[in-house]
Simulated assay, not measured.
Amino acid sequence: MPDQRKDNAEETLSAFAVEPSHDKATLDFYLKQHPELANELIDLSLELEMADPTEEDVFDTDSAIVNTAWAAFIAGGATYAPITAASFTREVAHSLGIKSSALMGLRDKKVEIQSLPIAFSTRLSRALATSVERLVEYLAGPQAMPVGASFKSDAKPEQKSKISIEQLLAECGHTPEQIANILRED
């Protein structure tokens, strides 16, 4: 079993090495996918950052092992784009049957993730072209502060408590019937 674990680690590190960019977002993505390889990934990232760009590639990108690692990584779900504020479009709101203001509340992470029904989370993740796991991870983050909030206040703006999805939809003007339909379990 240890040999298989070592092979998987080598495949993952090789896949990271052939990434076109080794920026923070790429490193964070690999760290979330493979937390057991945190030290190795960080070390490799630093090595790649310090490498002389005039030198030849350290890794043989024509290597069968590198190509196999890359294919395995892609097959493992690496095709999802990260969720960003720009992911929350009018089309996403329309596909869910919610008002744009409600979608903006989700975008700004105002909702308690425990209040999201599984079916709604699944529909939202599909509309955002991501996995439910990544959606939950995104929504669990700290709330986004309104742009310029600190400039419009004499005191430091404070984070509000997160609210339930039902409360968000009601505050955005959805009727109880609409809320029941939006949050229905398929």
Rank of each mutant, 00 (worst) to 15 (best):
R90W: 07
A180R: 13
M145Y: 10
R5N: 08
K160Y: 02
A119E: 14
A69K: 11
S21H: 11
L116E: 07
G77R: 10
P53M: 01
Y138H: 11
N181W: 09
I163K: 10
T89N: 02
S45T: 00
K99D: 05
L48S: 03
S95Q: 13
A9F: 07
P176R: 07
E10P: 06
S21V: 08
S153V: 01
Q178R: 01
D186W: 11
S115Y: 05
T89L: 03
V147N: 05
A78R: 02
S164G: 11
E171L: 12
A51K: 09
S131Y: 04
P157H: 10
E11Y: 13
I98S: 02
I163L: 07
I42M: 13
L124C: 06
A25I: 10
V66F: 04
I42G: 05
Q33L: 11
E47W: 08
P146T: 05
P117E: 14
M145K: 05
V92G: 09
L96P: 07
S63V: 06
Y30D: 00
P35S: 05
P2A: 11
R5E: 13
A25V: 08
V92A: 11
T54W: 12
E49M: 08
A129Y: 05
A78M: 03
P146E: 14
E137A: 14
L44N: 02
H94D: 14
N39H: 12
G105W: 01
S131W: 14
K160I: 07
I42F: 10
E171W: 05
F151C: 08
S87W: 06
T175A: 13
E171S: 12
E40Y: 01
D7G: 01
A127G: 00
S125N: 11
R107L: 02
T130F: 03
V58C: 06
G105T: 01
I74H: 12
T122A: 02
S95H: 10
H22P: 05
V136L: 15
E185A: 03
I98F: 02
S131H: 03
E40I: 02
T79L: 00
E56H: 07
L31V: 08
V66Q: 04
H34D: 04
A25S: 14
S95E: 10
A75Q: 15
K6S: 08
D57Q: 06
K99H: 04
Q33F: 04
T84E: 15
T89Q: 01
S87V: 07
M1A: 12
V147W: 09
A15L: 12
Q33N: 10
L46H: 08
A127F: 05
D7Q: 15
A69Q: 11
P20Q: 09
V58G: 05
I83K: 08
S115L: 11
K162R: 15
A72M: 07
T122V: 08
A71L: 14
N8A: 14
L27R: 00
S101Y: 04
V18A: 09
H94Y: 09
M1F: 04
I42K: 15
D28V: 01
R90Q: 13
A102P: 00
S131T: 14
P142F: 05
A86N: 11
L41G: 12
I165Q: 04
A127N: 08
K109E: 03
I83E: 09
